[in-house]
C-alpha cells in the first residue's frame, strides 16, 4: 500500500537506519547484560571487571554459585507464587471493575456522572507513596469475613493476608480513564441495537462492548502488571502490611540480600531471576501488545 521512502528504506539507506537503531539497542541493553553477566561472578570479579568490557561478558571466575545461594537465602518459589497470584487477582478484578466504571462514564447517562469523573481525574495525580501511612492505619481496621473451617467469622484487620495486597489496588483511576476514552470511540447506536434485541445493559456490555474492545483490555492488562504498585513491583506496601514470610512477594526478597555483608553477585542473580520472567512474558506477547495499544489509540 504505502510507497513512501521512510517506510521502505532503499538498500543504500538501510545502513543509516540500522546503525542508529543498533547503537540505541546497545544503549538499552547494556545494563541488563551487565546484570546477567555479574550474576555469574564472584564479588571480587564483579568489582575487578567494572572498568572494562569484561563487565558484559561471562568471563573469569564464572559459575552458577550465586543462583544456588539465592535459593538458600530466599524461599524463591514461594515468593514468585505469591507475586503471580496477587498480580493475577489485581489484574483480573481490576479489568472487570475499572472497565465497567469506564463504560458507565463513557456511554451511560446517570446522575452524578460528572462528579465521579471529576474525582477520578483528581485522583490520577495522587502518588501512592504519599498516603501510605493513613492507608496502613485504614486497612488495619477494616472488617473481613474469614472462614474457620466452613464457619464464616468476622475478622477485624486486613494485615498479613493476600487480600490486603489485592483489594486496595483493584481500582485505578488511570485505567478507568483509558477504558472510558476507548469506549467513547466506539460507534454510537450499539446499545440501542442491542436493546432492540431485548438485551439488558449487562448483556450488552458483556456480549457486544467487551468483544469490540479487546485492544484496550490487552493494553490495560500490561499496564496493570507492569506499573501498579501492587503487582510485579510491589515492595513498600507488602513490607508494611504483610508480616508473614509465606505471603511475601518477590520484590521484598531483594532486601534479604542487604545484610552486614552484601554479596552483589547474589543480588544480581536474584534480580535477574525476578526480571527474566517478565521479559519472557513480554517477548511472548510483544506483538499483540503493541498492536493493541495501537488499536486502542489515545482518544479524547
Amino acid at each position: 500500500m504505502t510507497t513512501t521512502a521512510l517506510k521502505h528504506p532503499a538498500p543504500a539507506r538501510r545502513l543509516w537506519v540500522y546503525l542508529p537503531m543498533t547503537i540505541l539497542a546497545g544503549f538499552f541493553l547494556f545494563p541488563i547484560v551487565f546484570m546477567v553477566a555479574a550474576s555469574l561472578k564472584t564479588d571480587h570479579q564483579i568489582f575487578a571487571d567494572m572498568d572494562s568490557l569484561r563487565a558484559f561478558l561471562p568471563v573469569g571466575d564464572v559459575s552458577f554459585a550465586n543462583y544456588a545461594a539465592v535459593f538458600d537465602r530466599v524461599p524463591f518459589w514461594r515468593f514468585l507464587g505469591n507475586t503471580l497470584f496477587v498480580t493475577f487477582m489485581v489484574t483480573a478484578l481490576g479489568l472487570v471493575v475499572n472497565s465497567m466504571c469506564g463504560y458507565a462514564l463513557a456511554r451511560m447517562k446517570w446522575k452524578g456522572r460528572g462528579l465521579v469523573f471529576g474525582f477520578i481525574i483528581a485522583t490520577l495525580i495522587l502518588p501512592f507513596d504519599t498516603t501510605i501511612v493513613p492507608m496502613v492505619y485504614l486497612v488495619a481496621n477494616l472488617p473481613w469475613i474469614g472462614f474457620d473451617g466452613f464457619r464464616p467469622v468476622l475478622e477485624i484487620g486486613w494485615l498479613n493476608s493476600y487480600h490486603v495486597q489485592i483489594v486496595p489496588f483493584i481500582v485505578n483511576a488511570f485505567t478507568i480513564f483509558l477504558f472510558a476514552q476507548y469506549f467513547k470511540s466506539l460507534p454510537k447506536g450499539l446499545e440501542e441495537a442491542a436493546a432492540m434485541d431485548g438485551a439488558g445493559w449487562l448483556r450488552t456490555y458483556w456480549r457486544i462492548i467487551v468483544p469490540l474492545s479487546k485492544p484496550v483490555f490487552a493494553t490495560v492488562t500490561i499496564l496493570m502488571v507492569v506499573t501498579s504498585p501492587a503487582t510485579w513491583n510491589a515492595y513498600l506496601w507488602p513490607l508494611m502490611t504483610v508480616q508473614s514470610e509465606e505471603l511475601r512477594p518477590v520484590m521484598v526478597g531483594v532486601q534479604y540480600f542487604f545484610q552486614l555483608d552484601t554479596s552483589w553477585g547474589e543480588v544480581m542473580a536474584y534480580i535477574s531471576m525476578i526480571t527474566i520472567p517478565m521479559v519472557a512474558v513480554f517477548i511472548a506477547f510483544q506483538r499483540s501488545f503493541i498492536q493493541s495499544i495501537a488499536g486502542a489509540g489515545m482518544k479524547d
Binding site: 501511612v133 496502613v136 486497612v139 488495619a140 481496621n141 484487620g157 494485615l159 513490607l239 508494611m240 508480616q243
Partner: peptide, 9 residues
C-alpha cells in the same frame, strides 16, 4: 507499621 495497627509480636 505493626505498632500503628496494634499488631506487634
Amino acid at each position: 507499621a505493626a505498632a500503628l495497627s496494634g499488631d506487634l509480636p
